[in-house]
Design a protein around this nucleic acid. Sequence first.
DNA 1: CTAGGTGCAAAGTATTTGCAACGCT
DNA 2: AGCGTTGCAAATACTTTGCACCTAG
Lengths: 149, 149
Amino acid sequence: MDTEINQLRTECFRALCETAGIAVTHQRQVVYEELCVMHGHPSPEEVYGRVRSRIPSISLATVYKTIHLFIESGVFREVSLHHGTLRVETNARPHHHLVCTQCKAIRDIDAEELGLTPAEGQLSDGFLVQRYAVDVLGLCAGCQKSAPQ
Amino acid sequence: MDTEINQLRTECFRALCETAGIAVTHQRQVVYEELCVMHGHPSPEEVYGRVRSRIPSISLATVYKTIHLFIESGVFREVSLHHGTLRVETNARPHHHLVCTQCKAIRDIDAEELGLTPAEGQLSDGFLVQRYAVDVLGLCAGCQKSAPQ
DNA sequence: CTAGGTGCAAAGTATTTGCAACGCT
DNA sequence: AGCGTTGCAAATACTTTGCACCTAG
């Protein structure tokens, strides 16, 4: 029976919503619960598919709105902060990215300046490492001033 | 005068195309040259905008095709391998991603298992680090077998 | 000469928005 | 009761595709 664990999730979710200052609705509750039990990195469509089996009348737009709300509130994260459109890497030097979580600006930082030199070769499960791409997430100087908190 | 440097780029580009086994066309040449002088992480639209000032008749579709060709041939990279659609991170533990460059599959790896613990705090330019997101790019076990080379 | 490349327009996918009805607080 | 939330349909953004014509090799 998942009843008890869902009961627990309901409590957690109410608390989360209170903190974030948003309303607790049945749709949000169900999207939250389904996300909690989904593994991997589901797309809005996949979430929609599962949620619809519990709330047949829900719309995809609501799922999108809810996911965005969760991300803004810090309840969940998105896999990549720069997923919007195709972007070409024009910098040929080995480098990583400073990504501002506020304004989404991306700045390059030379690999050696960042000083991260992880192990090469084969990982335990047979994954063959080619290279590392590091996103350093944080606040750029500008956003630290404008959003002091 | 940029004439000389462009002359040089023309040479480089011909060599690149030869290696990749693709034809050298005026459109590809110009897209290549513009990408070389653009900074940051341009979108196809931005590239189109610049290229159009030199080849007014070029179509956005050609720019897309050309960018994809460049990426496949390894002439340029894309900023994020998982930019397609919004994906929700359901794994609450601190972790990073093993991304297969062949089949695009993403697997989680615990942060401590990867053993990468970079410095916290403030970077030289005032960027305030919150966390690191690492993509380990390579070939998963399956793709190593199917594409031995 | 011919295989591959281009431009156009149309189609496809992903996501957002305006608005009337509805439900939480 | 009032404002935020929902569902719908339409709009928008981004990207791909089919096809006739063109061009590099």
